[in-house]
Amino acid sequence: MIAKRHIVLYLMPAVIFTLLFFVFPLIFAGYISLQQWNGINEMVYAGLDNFKLVFQDPVFIKAVINTLLWVAGAVLLHIPFGLLLALLLARQPRGWKVFRVLFVLPNVISTTAIAFLWYFVLHVNLGLVNNILKLMGLGALARPWLADLKTALFAHQLPFIIYAGLTMVVFLTRISAIPAELNEAAKIEGATNWQKDWYITIPLVKDAVLINIILNLAFCLRMFEYPLLMTGGGPANETVNLGLYMFKEMIIANRYGVSMAAGLMTIAVGAVVTGTTLALSCIMDRRNGI
């Protein structure tokens, strides 16, 4: 048992911060989303006009779709790539520790710097990609990757998909917890490496998949640097996502109410996608009788 004043003393600082940075902002964002406001003049009550406005705004719809495509890129490309790397390194080939450190390196460098770097890697004239294509005699494929309507979306997600080091380490940590007897038994039964991966490792890292989905989901919802720095949301709003939409509405259009209506929708998208993921994982667990 513990005295009340001690609880208050130790708990209150953190509670005050949580109220200031999570509870109040949520309420305040909800309030602003109902106002017409440019941040300086008086607020004018606008009811649900801001929400009507964003739902009729094709750029907002595009932003929602692109945000979901970021999540899809994470689930369908980034995480499987991270798993593949983890499976390869889990067999501890020569120099696996070095590979592990190298693969995580880009995750330690800021997304701002990576965005800047890949802006040049994909640059029309200077870019690494176009020049490699020219060297290989495939100059016809060279294009302004980030300015081409067909490729911009994928091109500006490319660094995120490739730099899967952190995702890989989460898998590796889980794989190293698998009891060695399982793999030894499989080896005695004559299983190949790929069979061991498919029938033992992959089913046992399912909870790591869930963790990786949730972590990368948070990353994708917060994503802001790549669209801002690599494409500025262009060409023709092709790469706008929710983070950039909110930012532009607030800073450039000075429509604070619209920005926060979009902000609440971002939170809603996050809640829906997280909820769906958790529900799906529950259903899959039950099917497998766990």
Binding site: A14, V15, T18, L20, F21, F22, F24, P25, L26, F28, A29, I32, G39, A218, L221, R222, F224, G243, M246, F247, M250, Y256, S259, M260, G263, L264, T266, I267, G270, A271, T274
Partner: peptide, 19 residues
Amino acid sequence: LVGGILVPTNAFMVPYYFI
């Protein structure tokens, strides 16, 4: 105290700016 993990905090641009 822990629930905030799931909130995409860039949705709080305007509130944080004014706080």
